[in-house]
Design a protein around this nucleic acid. Structure first.
Lengths: 153, 153
DNA sequence: TTGCTATTGTTAGGCACCTAACTAGTTTGT
DNA sequence: ACAAACTAGTTAGGTGCCTAACAATAGCAA
């Protein structure tokens, strides 16, 4: 029964995935002319507001793994937008800061997040958005708890 | 102001992303012992219920690009779980079907989607889930519409 | 001081997503 | 009938996510 399969899949994937993919796609679409990926943009955003930051700190803010961030940073360094400097107080850590080119680029960038929020939720009842967020937040917490319990056993 | 930045980021990323990442992580955790990725599981699921399917059809069901599916299928073929057969009626198309090994593996697999739904939403009010889904679905549609309008201009 | 342990970042390899460009078939239009 | 346009799948290259294993540094303890 192909129809049945499709319905199951709909329920399974859920709209959270589709929303996430659609918002990421729009963000990539907006950033493509600047040759920037979504996480690269977040890094520039954070550096533009609070500099310098060490990578360890960034992994916590962005909630991604060290290895993942390492690749993102190396892309930004390759593009000449960000510099890595060894922290004199701890040679293991690397401080990140924007280069002149990075700062100049940042000044010309649009705000993809503002756009996404505006397009996605403009005119939508605030209480409905809050409820949806709460449902997702609680569900996320349950999933993470469940996984962490199994993991440690 | 680091605090301010973090708050903006929280709002920006939204719980849809976190929910999606958490559910994918749990699904990967469940499937890891079987050396299967999430999309690989979906393909096996669809083939186990309705076989054979051609790749073109699968890209529509899974809502992913041809190139993406091509890589997923080639992984499944490499693992000996799926066979690709040229469609005699249209040599361009390839029909997919499970191998014996694929069918045997499928019989031993747990249902990661059922688990995720149970863990994430057990005991949650149905109307709240429905509302959250509606909010996300509408937002997704607005994002996609917006992007498609810009794209075609 | 020497040696174990913990932490930071990188590298290697895998999955899942994308676009762009290619090949090989099929269809259509004149 | 044949060239043009379309379609199905692959390949190449990019992003973003992960785990596992490694090097270098730091810190602590005997």
């Amino acid at each position: 029964m192909p129809n049945n399969s499709n319905l199951d899949l709909e329920a399974a994937e859920s709209w959270a995935k589709k929303y996430f993919l659609a918002s990421r796609a729009l963000m990539e679409f907006v950033l493509r002319p600047y040759d920037l990926g979504t996480t690269q943009w977040y890094v520039l955003y954070l550096l533009a507001h609070d500099e310098p930051i060490n990578q360890r700190e960034l992994t916590r803010t962005l909630e991604i793994e060290r290895a993942t961030l390492s690749a993102v940073i190396s892309a930004l360094v390759r593009k000449g937008l960000v510099e890595q400097i060894s922290d004199p107080h701890d040679q293991r850590q690397k401080l990140l800061q924007l280069t002149i080119a990075g700062r100049n680029l940042w000044a010309t960038l649009p705000d993809p997040i503002g756009l996404i929020t505006a397009v996605a939720f403009d005119g939508v009842d605030d209480t409905e958005i809050a409820l949806a967020n709460r449902v997702l937040r609680d569900a996320t917490q349950r999933l993470n708890n469940y996984k962490n319990e199994r993991k440690s056993i």
